[in-house]
Amino acid sequence: MPSFVFLQMAVSLTKVELVMLGMMLCGYYSPGPAFGRSARKGNLDTPLRDLHAPMVRSAQAFELEPLCTESILKTFLEGHPGVRGLKAAKAALPWVRNTSASHMETALYLLLCLPVHMGGYGLPKPYLNPLVRIEQASGDITCYPDLYWPGSSIDVEYNSDWAHCGVSAHYLDSRRLTAIVCNDIDYLSISTGQLKNAQDMDNAARGLARKLKHRIRYTDEEWQRKRTRLRGVVLPPVDL
């Protein structure tokens, strides 16, 4: 049961790691089939408490049905008072969002929206991949913005090298971008390179904050150290 796994792992994982696990359980992706398994025996050969780092670094499977939702996790936790790990699970749950499409979308969301004391920028939480209908002269089209703030009409897209390569993908992205911009939705694109470069990410976060009319409250070196630690947890060393 995914909810039980979330609660069980609250004992072993840090808060950020547990949020990432929750995002995966409620998202459209998972580690690939070889994750955590012995090539010789085909069984799990890594203790559960040590699986986070390999999970971040593993190949992934995409476009899967979510195993869980925020509300299911919440209901499960409320139904198990006094269980070991409950306090940590409840502390992580408010940052879990439904329907992330990839680990890197999750990383982008966490870097932007986790609170300053955790190394994030503290931006308002968006919806991830919600259904948005956009009007066109030829008929409405359906889009699923990666990170979407409906109140401010802002769409932030993670443009991975893998998902957006090729002529066909470029054409579809261009057509969607035209429809989005022509319907007064602000569009910001974050590439893999930007996400992995702390200064580029800082510039993007500041620009997004201005669009959201949100003040980023940090300046000191302590926050920068926390940001570095957070980036080390959420970002893999390979492009996804």
Rank of each mutant, 00 (worst) to 15 (best):
P31K: 09
L21H: 00
M20T: 04
M20N: 05
P33A: 08
S38P: 07
P33V: 03
L18C: 11
M24W: 07
S30F: 05
S12E: 14
G32I: 05
K15I: 04
G32D: 15
G36A: 08
L13R: 12
M9R: 14
L13M: 13
V19W: 04
V16D: 05
G27N: 12
E17T: 06
G27S: 13
M23S: 04
V16A: 09
V16L: 10
G22E: 01
M20H: 03
Y29P: 08
P33K: 03
T14Q: 12
Y28Q: 15
F35A: 00
M20Q: 11
A10F: 09
S30Y: 03
V11Y: 07
V19Y: 03
P31E: 13
L13V: 03
M20W: 00
V16P: 07
E17I: 04
V19A: 09
Y28L: 13
M23P: 00
Y29M: 08
L18A: 06
A10S: 15
T14M: 07
P33M: 03
A10N: 10
M20F: 11
G36F: 00
S12T: 12
L25F: 05
A34V: 09
E17Y: 02
L13Y: 15
G36Y: 00
M24Y: 03
R37Q: 05
A10V: 08
A34R: 11
V16T: 14
A34D: 12
L13H: 10
G27K: 13
C26D: 01
R37C: 03
G22S: 03
A34S: 11
M24N: 01
Y29Q: 12
L18I: 04
G32K: 04
S12A: 14
S38C: 15
E17L: 04
M23W: 06
M23G: 04
L18D: 09
M9G: 06
G36R: 00
G32Y: 03
S38G: 14
A34T: 11
M20V: 09
M9V: 07
L25Y: 05
R37P: 00
S12C: 11
M9T: 06
L18V: 02
M9I: 07
L18W: 02
R37H: 00
G22Y: 01
Y28D: 13
P33L: 02
E17C: 11
V11C: 14
S38D: 15
C26S: 08
G22P: 00
A10R: 08
V16H: 05
S30Q: 13
T14K: 09
M24R: 13
S38Y: 06
G36I: 01
L18S: 08
Y29N: 07
